[in-house]
């Protein structure tokens, strides 16, 4: 049975041998691997440049075997713009968390999307600041506890959670905007197809492809990995529904309505 000819799945060699610095069960590793699987399948390792963020994925360049530039907090879309403008035929992607992309880097995100930079943005939304110890993120749900909202996020004081994905989908520069999750096998396969599509859009120079991945942060949420994935489905799905938001440059959802949706209060 354990023979080369029977091999149906192995870790892509485009992931380095380094042990991932992520907590057990964290979705970051899965998304890293999916991106590298697509790069491997498209045969574009020699032409791919990644931009890593500040946050848990700051060391993403240790794990993905492609050229990388590490950006200051939130500035990845600007860094990607600089690279892509000088290497228009290379594949450039940013990999960013919710604090990086939707708080400190909001301006860079929105303007790169508005200009339609021909890049891929991969956005991990786990509703919390993981690396700094579980503080409130722009995407933290109402009522959700974090180390800076120990009594739950109060929308009156801290504002409601921010759906940046629905926001940038309305900009003319974005060609493909979609939301996925990676904690179940079926979802992983769909997410990988979306990543492939994003890189193909870049190849065809059609504009910016933006994928949000809902992920757990079991350490920050203080749950076991499987419990956190369950919690993700129960609490994040209703506010951050999975599926395509914009396809081929056309909105496929009523994003204005989605943006006005009141966050369910979680405890």
């Amino acid at each position: 049975m354990i023979k080369e000819e029977n091999l149906v799945y192995r870790r892509t060699p485009l992931m380095t041998d380094a042990t991932l610095s992520y907590c057990p069960g964290c979705g970051h590793g899965t998304v890293h691997r999916l991106i590298m699987e697509v790069v491997e399948e498209m045969g574009i390792q020699q032409d791919t440049i990644g931009i890593s963020p500040v946050g848990c994925a700051v060391l993403a360049y240790d794990f993905m075997d492609v050229d990388f530039s590490e950006a200051a907090h939130g500035r990845a879309p600007a860094v990607a713009t600089g690279i892509k403008r000088l290497w228009p035929d290379k594949f450039v992607f940013t990999y960013q968390g919710d604090g990086d992309l939707a708080a400190i880097g909001t301006a860079e995100t929105i303007h790169a999307c508005n200009r339609g930079e021909n890049i891929c943005i991969f956005f991990i939304n786990n509703g919390i600041y993981g690396m700094t110890g579980g503080q409130m993120a722009p995407t933290t749900l109402e009522g959700m506890k974090s180390s800076t909202t120990p009594y739950g996020r109060d929308a009156m004081k801290m504002g409601p959670p921010f759906k940046i994905t629905e926001l940038i989908a309305q900009l003319p520069g974005t060609h493909y905007v979609t939301r996925h999750a990676v904690h179940k096998a079926g979802l992983v396969r769909k997410a990988k197809k979306a990543i492939r599509k994003a890189f193909e859009i870049q190849q065809e120079k059609k504009g910016l492809a933006f994928i949000e991945f809902l992920s757990n942060c079991n350490s920050g949420w203080k749950m076991t990995p499987n419990d956190s994935n369950q919690w993700l489905e129960e609490h994040m799905y209703p506010f951050y529904p999975l599926g395509d938001i914009k396809v081929d440059g056309k909105l496929v959802k009523d994003v204005c309505k989605d943006l006005m949706q009141k966050s369910p209060v979680t405890t």
Binding site: K3, N6, Y9, R11, L20, G25, K184, A185
Partner: peptide, 15 residues
């Protein structure tokens, strides 16, 4: 391959 594709650490090989 379901186990392998969801493994965040890519620890599983499937035959």
């Amino acid at each position: 391959t379901n186990c392998a594709v969801v493994c965040p650490d890519g620890a599983i090989t499937v035959y």
